[in-house]
Amino acid sequence: MSGDPPVVSGEAALHQIQLNGEPRQVAAATILALVEELSLDPRKVAVERNLEIVPKSLHAATPVAEGDRIELVQFVGGG
């Protein structure tokens, strides 16, 4: 990877993370912002960051850092 990406005026720097198994560049600085950036309803998903559950109550306080491995899951049909 090259050095820090350029900061576009008025926006936060992008971080490179692993999101649901895929590399992705995101602007969000917190888990809450990430869920919003992805247009997801925080009440309907669960978040794991670097193999640790991030409770909903801590979404706003938990940072998204360069290199984080994040899993966003939901309930789907199953037997």
């Binding site: 999101l19 992805l38 247009s39 669960a46 966003l72 899951v73 309930f75 199953g78």
Partner: peptide, 12 residues
């Protein structure tokens, strides 16, 4: 019963 799976990020 329900299963737990990754959210489909390409189609929210």
């Amino acid at each position: 019963t329900v299963a737990v799976r990754r959210v489909n990020l390409s189609d929210p």
